[in-house]
Simulated assay, not measured.
Amino acid sequence: MSGDVQMGTVVVGHVPNPRGAAALAHGVQEARRRGARLVVVNSSRGDALVDPEYLQGEALRGLSDQLAASGVAFEVRQPVGRDVAEELAAVVTETAADLLVIGIRHRSAVGKLLMGSAAQRILLDVDCPVLAVKTAPPA
């Protein structure tokens, strides 16, 4: 048995919108509370010339600066090619994550019954606890 202390991992699915910001804030909070490293996943299917949810340039630098200022150990991953549910499940498995944090949107009664297809697949596909974070309701 090794004397090394294994640092846990919190994975966050991040997109540049209020849901992504809420997920990131909770992910940082959970990583800090658990003494874990944070793996932020910002992915793209790569099926469009421009993907507004895929961080580049100044937006990517801003995210890295924000994470560096948080004081938690972090890594930003930007895979291209698979859908977000598959990508998050792969990262959770690879890192043996303790927690996955995702942002979800407010929905109507019917939407609540159906949930988002990506969020539903994530909940069903990953083998760790999932923290689904909502943004504040619109005023």
Rank of each mutant, 00 (worst) to 15 (best):
Y54G: 03
V84D: 13
G62P: 03
G46H: 11
G62A: 12
E58D: 14
E58K: 04
L63N: 06
L55M: 13
R61C: 02
E94N: 09
D65E: 15
R37D: 04
E58A: 14
L60A: 14
G81T: 00
L49C: 03
R77F: 02
V50S: 00
R45D: 11
D47I: 00
R45Y: 15
V40A: 03
E94R: 11
V80N: 03
E75N: 07
L67K: 08
L38H: 07
V92R: 01
A69F: 06
V76G: 01
V41F: 15
T95I: 08
S44G: 09
R82G: 06
R77C: 01
D83R: 05
T95E: 14
V92H: 03
A59D: 08
E94D: 14
E53S: 10
V91H: 07
E86P: 03
R77Q: 09
D65Y: 13
V80W: 12
Q66I: 03
Q56R: 14
E94Q: 14
E53K: 09
G62C: 01
E75L: 15
V84M: 11
L88Q: 04
A90P: 00
Q66D: 04
E86N: 07
E86A: 09
E75K: 11
L49R: 06
Y54H: 13
S64K: 15
V72Y: 06
E75S: 13
E87L: 07
V80F: 12
V80Q: 12
L55E: 03
R82Q: 12
S70A: 07
D51E: 07
D47M: 10
A73C: 09
E75H: 11
A73V: 08
D83Y: 05
Y54I: 00
V41T: 05
A48G: 06
V72M: 11
T93R: 10
E87R: 10
V80G: 02
G57H: 04
D83I: 00
V50Q: 00
Y54C: 04
A48L: 14
E94T: 11
L38S: 05
S43G: 13
T93C: 01
E87G: 12
R61D: 07
Q56P: 01
S70Q: 05
E86S: 09
F74A: 12
G71N: 02
L63I: 14
D65H: 09
V39R: 03
R45P: 04
